[in-house]
Write a protein that binds this DNA or RNA. Sequence first.
DNA 1: CTCAATATCCGTACGATGTACGAGAATAGA
DNA 2: TCTATTCTCGTACATCGTACGGATATTGAG
Lengths: 238, 238
Amino acid sequence: MSRAGGAGAPGVDPEQLWLSSARPRRGRKPAYSREAITAAAVALADAEGLEAVTMRKVAARVGAGAMSLYSYAPDKETLLELMVDHVSGELPTTNTLTGDWRADLKAIARLQRAHMLRHPWLPAALATRRVPGPNTLAFLEHALAALRPTGLDGAAKLEVFAQLTAFVAGHVAHEIARTAASQSPDRAAAEARYLAAVAADGRHPELAEALAAPGRPLTPEATFTRFLNRLIDGLDTD
Amino acid sequence: MSRAGGAGAPGVDPEQLWLSSARPRRGRKPAYSREAITAAAVALADAEGLEAVTMRKVAARVGAGAMSLYSYAPDKETLLELMVDHVSGELPTTNTLTGDWRADLKAIARLQRAHMLRHPWLPAALATRRVPGPNTLAFLEHALAALRPTGLDGAAKLEVFAQLTAFVAGHVAHEIARTAASQSPDRAAAEARYLAAVAADGRHPELAEALAAPGRPLTPEATFTRFLNRLIDGLDTD
DNA sequence: CTCAATATCCGTACGATGTACGAGAATAGA
DNA sequence: TCTATTCTCGTACATCGTACGGATATTGAG
């Protein structure tokens, strides 16, 4: 809990952060909790986006002074780690495996996508590497269990999961950006005019053709499914 | 060039940004150039990371006052767009297609990976949606040409390219994070001890096994190749 | 009970950031 | 020369993360 004993230069010692639990027996009792502060930060990010998560605003949400947060997390970066692990607690970790590892893996990816759409700040927060917290590790354990029938070795299983998560995050990030863009009609119209102008300049024949063709709408859901299936069906077990 | 005529609320009008070229015939001559400022920002990001790119530092690099930058880009967000498009100019756009679209697509992805490793801030900068500038569009045109033999319709070709780029960005982001983590021995050791402790708690048997198994080292290069091949070989042309 | 030790709470303050504002300087047509 | 236009950039402000340290609460020691 205390600020004393901070770790080295970059980031925070994961052992200090995730494995220390004993309440100090001396000193004032905490008025808040890491849980409550993290939840407030998550609620703020859900409602107003990641850039709205400032120490002052989070503190205001829990009714604390800004500097009080530093008794619960050594810095803002760490608060972000706490947030990521906090929402990872929403993911299921048991009793959902069928034994068909491809189907299980696809289900896991779908859950991750839904999860990230529910917390649109997650892809951005995952972009910088983080030390997995307990909830993240529980989910990882679940994913590794799903991969057990593949017979892949440990490192390969971890790789598959990392790549799958990166793929989902990348997809959802694009999906969110595209949705946001189309919600601003002026922006969307301006961009369409711009692209039309480029396509008309004669030096982008392929682009012109691609934009001109009608084609079916291509929902994000369908695109996600298609690429996910490609990725997973292509996985070998040797 | 002028600040006058700023666009709507979010982002910048792409037509204003990319399609206006005529120098105003009245008024003081510009002492710098958008090119030079963008190049300075890129150099700064390459050398010290994206978070080192501040208006003041970029301005200092070109020998200008901080506020002078606002004659060349309406805000910092736009400067980031300029940076992304600037480095996209390094990508080849002609005479590299063999007609074997799978091979061409793999080559394009490899170029993107090398490009992003050369500019490690790129994956993060691409995470938020941007309007493609001329260099980006030239590269897109190249990728669409590579996809021509597939016979896919326009929207599908654009989707494939977007997904491929997202995949590469996700992979490289992880690759960079992993490299950075292993460059700080204290951090790496602390994380290893933490994971070992978790694996030893009995509630993470799959993780324990995955960490215990030796397995070959798995270079990022090899992992990238493997997943890239899966993704592209799985693409259908119908 | 008293008191020292310890931990939390948080007001104040500092440096850094993005950028609004506007005064001054430079340029080109009238 | 005058005036309209454009670029330059010092100053200023709101906001950010967070260092510092005094006030406050809690507990074990004497």
